[in-house]
Simulated scan of single mutants.
Amino acid sequence: MDMRDIAKLAGVSSATVSRVINGSNLVRPETVERVRKVIEEVKFFPNTSATTLKYGRSGTYGLIIPDITNPFFPEFLKCFESIVVENDHEMLMATTDLHSGHMQQTIRRMLVRRVDGVALLASEIETEPFESLVHNRVPLVTMDRGHIANGLSDVAINNKSGMDQAMLHLKELGHKKIGYIGGSAGLTISEHRVEAFVRALKRVDLVPHPEFMRHGNYRVTGGMAAMTELLSLKDRPTAVLTANDVTAVGAMRVILKMGLTIPRDISIIGFDDIELSDIVHPPLTTLRLNRYDLAKTFYDALQHFKADSRTYGKRHVVKTNLVIRESTGPARKRTATGSSAI
């Protein structure tokens, strides 16, 4: 069965059926309803390849994420797909697996499928893969990279709002020696978060301690390794903020393994507010980056290029805010020997 059969059953022309399928506003509402009813009754699925060839648009958005094992990204993926499908679009997802060499292959997949735009949440991308997208007039929306141009928008994460709340919370609890476990060295998003951490400390009149700052890898292993180093210090921090919740989970694992308690001996704050953060023990205080808001912002940013793929891009911002749970508590004074005072 093809569009001619649908047109015959609905009593309209094939052109009208085509317009209904492609969301044209040139068809009367009652006609749209009649055609869609026939399509649903006969379970007709249009040939999207033919539509792409005719109109130059596939109705598909590409999504590139760095690490499917990080719970943040499946949670984002669920929200983004829901929004895309609700708006009669499709989604093509790919992952770089934190490997920059996979990016070129991933971009090629997107171009072969003729996606209408790409949402890129991977920060390790180099300049070269952009060239293929630009050459083929495929709009791109990046996360926290800070660049906009024709066909290029960026979604910035407002670390300041959440970081300021976190530092004020720790200061009110009596913490002065605050550490930080960041993300992978060299990534733009990692640099933005550590800079926001240092600035937030200074805004509440606390002194940054470089010896309390470590790189991680956005994974449990990075959190474990960095926290092991911090706990080996003779004068260690009383609270630690991490670049994401998965890193915080790794840090918490080491703290408990060494016979210390959270938050009595050391307070921990994560970043993202993944579902797991409210399940771990103790429940994790964290900076919430709302997944639905982030997904909707990416979708709206892609839609900005719907009329013209070379439209000049925009900078979008998504806020963070502190969610206080049980992993933060009053700072304990330390004795001259380095042990915690009761």
Rank of each mutant, 00 (worst) to 15 (best):
P283V: 02
V115R: 11
A50V: 06
Y299T: 05
F80Y: 13
D273P: 04
M163T: 01
K54F: 10
L77I: 08
E128W: 10
R332H: 01
K54R: 15
G62N: 01
T285F: 06
H316S: 13
F72P: 04
T286A: 07
G313R: 00
T335Q: 15
V138M: 02
R199F: 03
T311C: 04
R145F: 08
R57L: 04
D278P: 05
A10P: 02
I274N: 05
H147W: 12
E75W: 01
I324F: 08
K202N: 07
K333G: 14
K319S: 15
S232V: 00
A94S: 13
P263E: 07
L63K: 00
K296R: 13
A301V: 12
I279M: 11
A119F: 03
V207L: 14
M258E: 15
G186N: 09
V118Y: 07
P71K: 01
P139Y: 02
Y312A: 07
S123I: 03
L322K: 10
D97H: 13
I148L: 01
S123E: 05
H102D: 10
R108C: 12
H147Q: 13
I39W: 06
V118Q: 04
H99A: 11
I189T: 15
R334D: 05
M252G: 00
S132W: 05
E131D: 14
I189Y: 06
L170Q: 07
S267H: 04
T96D: 09
H169M: 03
G313Q: 03
I157R: 01
L289I: 08
S123R: 07
E195Q: 12
A122H: 11
L168T: 10
L276V: 07
E275I: 06
R193W: 06
K257T: 08
E195F: 12
T48D: 12
G117M: 04
L173V: 09
V17Q: 02
N150G: 09
